[in-house]
Design a binder for these strands. Sequence first.
RNA 1: GCCGAAGUGGCGGAACUGGCAGACGCACGGGACUCAAAAUCCCGCGCCCCUCGCGGGCAUGAGGGUUCGACCCCCUCCUUCGGCACCA
Length: 966
Amino acid sequence: MPAYDPHAIEAKWQEYWERNRTFCTGDRSSKPKLYVLDMFPYPSGEGLHVGHPEGYSATDMYCRFKRMKGFNVLHPMGYDAFGLPAEQYAIETGTHPRVTTEKNISNIRRQIKRLGFSYDWDREFASTDPEYVHWTQWIFLLLFDTWFDPEYEWIDPEGKKRTGKGRPISELPIPAVVQTDGEETVCRYRDSFRLAYQAESPVNWCAALGTVLADEEVINGRSERGDHPVQRIPLRQWMLRITAYADRLIEDLESLQWPDPIKEMQKNWVGRSQGAEVDFFIETSDTSYEKWTAERKAMGFPGQPGPDTIRIYTTRPDTLFGATYMVLAPEHPLVGKLTTDDQRSEVEKYIKYASNLSEEDRVAGRGEKSGVFTGGYAINPVTGEKIPVWIADYVLISYGTGAIMAVPGHDQRDLEFARTFQLPVRAVVMPTDDWFQRMQDYLERLHEVLVIEVPNKKWPPQDPLGPDNYTQYIELLPEAFIEDGEGMQSANPGVSLNSLPTPLAKEKIVAWLVRSGIGRSAIKYKLRDWLFSRQRYWGEPIPILHALNADGEPSGLIQAVAEDELPVLLPEMEDFKPTGRPGGPLEKAVEWIHVRKEGREFARETNTMPQWAGSCWYYLRFCDPRNRDKAWDPDKEGYWMPVDLYVGGAEHAVLHLLYSRFWHKVLFDRGHVSTMEPFQKLVNQGMILSTTYRTSKGRIVPYSKIDFKEGKAFHVETAEELAGETEKMSKSRGNVIPVDIPVQQYGADTTRLYEMFIGPLESTKPWSMQGVEGISRFLNRAWRMIVDESGDELKLNPAVVRNDAPADEEQLRVLHRTIDAVSRDMESLSFNTAISRLMEFVNYFTAQENRPLTCMESFVLMLSPMAPHIAEELWQVLGHSESIAYAPWPLLDSRYIQESTIEMPVQINGKVRGRITVSADADEKAMEQAALSDPKVKKHLEGHAIRKTIVIPKKMINIVAKPNTN
RNA sequence: GCCGAAGUGGCGGAACUGGCAGACGCACGGGACUCAAAAUCCCGCGCCCCUCGCGGGCAUGAGGGUUCGACCCCCUCCUUCGGCACCA
């Protein structure tokens, strides 16, 4: 039966690898190490579709290639198994999430194993394993035990001087005032510095469902399930102080081999900006403005703003003279104080309205600015002018200081707001000529559609827009000038920014603000601290105990669960239904919660960790997955880290990668890991698309209802021809192709090869069942090139056996050119072109009567990383008894890729008109001569005068010629 | 709206650093083998023109530019996909 039988071969070799533990990796070796990692998959109940194994196929091919090149390769697999779906399923059916999870894991493990990936299965684990939960909790406690010292100076492994480091909380200096206040105050003081801390933060509370919802479960302020109203209510939460590491998260990106767009996205997410904080005096204060300014001048800028000032953050302190009003976030603490009795009901109404909008809904109303005047005023510290204070939802309490100075002349949002509520607009930066020109062009284009009501002004301006009429028309322009320009209308007795370019103006005004005790330069980040607690059952319990006072109420004092009491495992529960309280399902486990220790009463923390926790450090556990005493052995970590190649989807570009990097840096600061960054090289595989079929009425038809024939699709019932469109795979589109389908039909090798053959790893590409067929044909051809299909027993094709003579020159040239190209393609993860090269090889050698054994062996070696099962089988047919997995990669003999003669195209005026063949060592002169004597070239040059000849050795010759005029 | 990526035959794609556009595969057409079909093998296959040849022209989203020479670099525009969402 020597026809290619993928199923028999694949079962045989998968069994062989497993029995011989072929891919289990030792932790020490004289070979260079290589750590190749796939992103931690979530074991969903749906199983894998053809898109999932794309990245796994790529890393597997790379690992197998590198093993043959002599590397000691770590290539593990595991499961990120906590998460919402299993819990949701438990609520609906009563099935314990652990049961669902285990079932899903074994299904996915089966699917992965069938593809024959060379994972070290001895290292497999799931984030839900108690031993893993143990060390996840241990890391949480490390975060709890760490504070960030922004002043600490140290030298990084590259010898660079750095400032700011995470240190043990025991090293936190305690101010004398705190010390004297007693033990309890010291505790609270420490708690306020920890990287893991508690704070109030709003959650999506759905009273009807009796539970807290994730953002994605809320649509337009209502629950996705059941369409019930959702409220935002504050809740005590655990936060992680990722903002302390903001600068290092940006700086350290530089050393990484990551795609630039991903680095860019991370930078933008952290969103560092340089600006200034400025205090504005509130008019309704008890003191007078004069007294306030005098005090400030004497005392300087205080760390906290005090009750009579609004502190704002701005990136454009140079526009301070143009601040004509202020806006506070509705949640800002000073709103109550500023609001006058007249305005109170309006303001309260607005606050209520804004508080029930999720951030997403706030954005939905963008464009139309909403807000309310508080009735209160503040004083602009540079002009001394009284300016109104408003509240509006476009100012976010979570960013900066939750308050802004509004400069409608030079900020688009402020301009729109000012126009809506008819607030004054003042020009304080003179735009560039270039901008005037652009604005003028824009006005001319908009001329007919733009209708702006203008009292006392003719609109649009008669004269072209420019410095002379800018001030006059500023509030009518469709866009504010927000770029750098020159200061204007910006002077008071103490300081003038007039005619100063923006960067200098910023410096000058900040210096003045500092002198006056009114402001200081400041850096802000968009990045916010990481909300780390979830009101869920199926997650790692947060290992914290809350001390209870005599009444059994939490005293506010907390302590970590002792290290030797970890892990804190989830209590067994049967009913996962919501409690009806925001606290989450663990509140039901009364016995589990109650802890008595050394005669004192404690309640366990009932919040659990988010799904991110498990995927934040799994790459470290893979270095030493069975360690019972430690999260990992430092020697093993030192040997394997960092991850040399990390492959996964771009959807994790920001959050997962940022969170992991943050944990890694804390672990580094506390001396637990040897590298500052976890993932040296990152590659994002592109999405695999599928075809969605719809009827002429636009109804989606699932694959089970489609009859494919003659390259077209017909509805099984109506026989209507269906139109196909390439789209993302999703359940709702009915176009999901489970990976079992191609594996069953064509085998694992064909499936893996096709995953890579469709196109470059990083691009989005459509799956085509017909394309899979082509790959299957290729493997069959390769098989027949080497195996004799005629008899009953497995033996070499006579064309291979017969040949005792060495390969001829041409065969060697084909072979070595293939080795050269495939080796380079494998190194750069260009598997699509590597496969093409192997196809060309097969096409060539299939036509050869004599197929030298050495050539066939090299071919099988090159095929083996990509299609390992068939390669093992062919390797055996070729007479080897050992697995091919560690056989050395074929060596390139560069003599065979050098040509003795070269064919070069000859261009005349950039068009190919002939070809010449010259010897490889011919000089430019000789090439030119050869070109000029070529009959076709001669013919084309008739009646032309040669003006110039460009000779690029080995590439081409271009003759520039002009027709003779005479 | 902003940020990012990408537009090449009927389709997926290839083309290394600015040097022969369309490798390889799919689909399609023709032929061989066969009683027949499948499988397999061979040939053809960007578009257009013609005096049908070893001919010519046009072609890498559109328009322009740089260059002896542009899929590749620059400018403007169009389209598609992905991400983000008023960040002061």
